[in-house]
Simulated assay, not measured.
Amino acid sequence: MSSSAQKPPIVPYQHSKLSKKAQVAQMFNEIAGRYDLLNRLLSAGIDVQWRRKAIRLLADIQPQHILDVATGTADVALMLARQYPQAQITGVDIAEQMLELGRRKVAEAHLDSRIILQQADAEALPFPDHAFDAVMVAFGVRNFENLQAGLKEMLRVLKPGGKAVILEFSQPESFPVKQLYHLYFRYITPMIGKWLAHHREAYAYLPASVSAFPYGQRMIDLLTEIGYQQVICRKYTLGICSVYCGYKKQS
């Protein structure tokens, strides 16, 4: 057995007997009410720019049907609907409380006719093969219990020639950004999470899950092995965040 296989999964609640998937759902349900506020605060608002840049990477295919995986409170779904006014958006998430907030935001934006949100497991998507022109996921894949299974499901529901865009935290490698980044993520983020969300576990899980994620070339290699074509990676903000793009092979 490889050393990587021996490592226990990174989970929000170290003493819980629940699976990672169940723990992640519980965690996001518990912090749903403060999730958007903390995202803006912890990133100084730059997470909005990361999402916008990633969404624009779908422009080359002008998608008609888009799946937003791990949609959460529908931030990305709403941005997609505004960027691509011809598109229908389906958002899925395992945390029902996050979806409830998302549905309110969609209703307030009067986009109910174009955005549908539903509870679903990213590793067992309830859609037929070749159902979507594009699949988007922002800051969600590191929460998958089985990363390969989730990425394979995303590829399965893509139409031939369709495009996947995956936005996720990565790790800067240059001095002193690397050192400052780890200091902020390891110590300051959990402290802010405890004060504002009353949930230190969620914001201690964040840096741990980022550290364990196969970013950069490892992620490119994984996507290529699964079957994505023309996979590229772009780094944002000195490597704090990366976006991965890949296509489904034309039939």
Rank of each mutant, 00 (worst) to 15 (best):
G33C: 05
V11C: 01
E153Q: 12
Q250T: 10
D68V: 10
I166Q: 07
G102Y: 14
Q97F: 10
A109L: 11
S251F: 07
A131P: 15
A70L: 13
L42R: 03
L57D: 04
Y203A: 06
Q97A: 12
I89R: 00
R114T: 02
S242N: 07
H198V: 08
A77S: 14
S251R: 11
R200Y: 08
H130I: 11
L78A: 01
A131T: 15
L206P: 08
T189A: 14
R186V: 06
I188D: 08
I116W: 11
Y215L: 08
S242E: 11
Y203P: 13
P176H: 00
T73I: 07
R103S: 11
D75V: 02
Q6M: 12
V48M: 06
I55Q: 12
V177W: 01
K105G: 00
I55F: 05
F127S: 06
K152R: 14
M154G: 05
G161M: 07
Y215A: 09
A77V: 06
Q86C: 08
V210T: 10
M154E: 12
V11E: 01
C233G: 04
G140F: 06
G150M: 09
Y215H: 14
F213H: 03
A197K: 11
L223Y: 06
P63V: 13
L101N: 11
R142L: 04
Y244E: 05
R51K: 03
V69L: 08
I188T: 08
L41K: 15
S251H: 11
M191W: 09
H65Q: 15
E201G: 11
N39I: 02
L125E: 05
L125W: 10
G91M: 02
G227Q: 15
L99Y: 15
C233A: 13
S3K: 06
F132G: 08
Q250D: 08
L206Q: 01
I94R: 03
L111H: 03
C241K: 04
Q23I: 02
I55W: 10
V137S: 13
R234I: 01
Q230N: 09
A197V: 08
L223G: 03
T73N: 03
Q64H: 05
V48I: 07
L117T: 08
S2H: 08
Y205W: 15
G91L: 04
M191L: 10
A87F: 14
Q62W: 10
G91H: 03
S43V: 02
Q217W: 15
S19G: 00
W50G: 03
Q6E: 06
P160K: 14
A44N: 09
L37D: 02
A120Y: 10
K235C: 01
P128Q: 07
V11N: 01
D68I: 10
L18C: 00
Q217S: 15
A212M: 15
M98F: 13
P8W: 14
R40K: 11
S174I: 13
I10P: 02
R142S: 04
G140Q: 06
Y247D: 00
I10K: 05
K194G: 09
K17T: 12
T71C: 10
S4Q: 05
L37H: 05
E173I: 02
